[in-house]
Design a protein around this nucleic acid. Structure first.
Lengths: 207, 207
DNA sequence: TGGCAAACGGAGATGCTATCTCCGCTTCTC
DNA sequence: GAGAAGCGGAGATAGCATCTCCGTTTGCCA
């Protein structure tokens, strides 16, 4: 009567269902450590299964990436919500960026989804649609508070992520990003001594 | 008697010498526009020559990249020297970064050499060895001047370039980098209201 | 428990792309 | 004008990722 697996799919044999989960778990690890360029063969081996099995469950790699990516969206959104709840807008904004950057720093696959081109860009757009409504008001509040310089725009935030992600990608140092995020945050705070206005921001969506 | 071409190489037939130059010029353009991933075949076609000719002049792509890269070093160093001559240390430092970032922004091949891994990293190290002695004193002077925050380190500069390069790479917008370089520079200036100290910098050379 | 459908495994077919070679033909040079 | 130097570009070679096929194993239910 009950459906142990997702609905809309004919129920799998017990071993098949187990293997499906194994594949998803393996994919999460492999994508996290080696990025989206990993092959389905890699994932299958890491799950202790044959390639054929992988291809029975997922028609191709994209499908598997999509499946894994569901998780990522939730984790990213959770970060944003948590940070948005902060009563101090500036602190909330900074914390929000820090959270997301931290997620990215530990997960190469996530970085590639958040910063990449092609399919990755479409996925990233999906996150944006869920995150933007949460974070945009935070930006306004931080400006009213006088902490965030007035010429910062919402689209600057993904660019910050991009830059910070590049640091981790290139160096492999797991915590170095914190230093440069701090510099960027300090650069976005209003200064008592004023600043020249920022050069123009992204024309449309930057990624 | 005179050697019209570089010394140390048996003189080439006139047409061969011309083709060699054509190849170098084509390589500069192709690498600039399409990055180092372009093939020797691409370069040859762009030069209006056959692949065979390309391989007679350069044993492989690496050799060609090295040849083209000589130019790049000189241009980058020229930037640095020009900016170092600035009497105002902070302004000189900022201008120096801006110059290099501008070069990078117009040249995908240069970006890949400056920011890439593998062979590219070794080449980039070569630039560093020539640039660092010029720029390091500038950092010290800018700190003494009180404009640059004291916890900035020399190795932060290549990281800035990295981040700024990532902006251009991802967006393709040719001037967007200016905005984020400005934010980074503002983040590196000392603030009248003080700042928390920066998280630790790169352990060794970051790239 | 027997038997059959479902699922598995993994070698290898397929397709793609980049690197580099080879040799008949062309162009310079003396 | 003859011999050497250089050219062109088809195609050999190699590497790699995707996905298929089918003989074998496993779970399921009567």
């Amino acid at each position: 009567m009950a459906e142990p697996a997702e609905p809309g799919r004919a129920p799998l044999r017990r071993d098949a269902e187990l293997n499906r989960r194994r594949l998803l778990a393996a994919a999460r690890e492999v994508f996290r450590d080696r990025g989206l360029a990993a092959t389905l063969d890699d994932v299958a081996r890491h799950a202790g299964l044959g390639v054929g099995t992988a291809y029975r469950h997922f028609a191709n790699k994209e499908e598997l990436v999509d499946a894994v990516f569901e998780d990522m969206i939730d984790r990213v959104e959770a970060c944003a919500r948590e940070a948005v709840a902060d009563p101090d807008p500036w602190h909330g904004l900074a914390a929000s960026l820090e959270k997301v950057c931290e997620l990215q720093a530990h997960d190469r696959g996530l970085r590639e989804v958040m910063l990449g081109t092609g399919k990755a860009a479409q996925r990233r757009a999906l996150v944006d649609r869920r995150i933007k409504p949460l974070v945009d008001p935070l930006i306004d509040r931080a400006k009213e508070q006088g902490a965030l310089r007035a010429d910062v725009e919402p689209l600057d935030l993904p660019m910050i992520q991009l830059m910070v992600g590049a640091v981790t990608d290139q160096t492999g140092e797991p915590d170095l990003w914190r230093r440069y995020l701090r510099i960027l945050l300090d650069g976005m705070r209003t200064r008592p001594d004023g600043t020249e206005p920022l050069p123009p921001g992204p024309k449309s969506h930057p990624l």
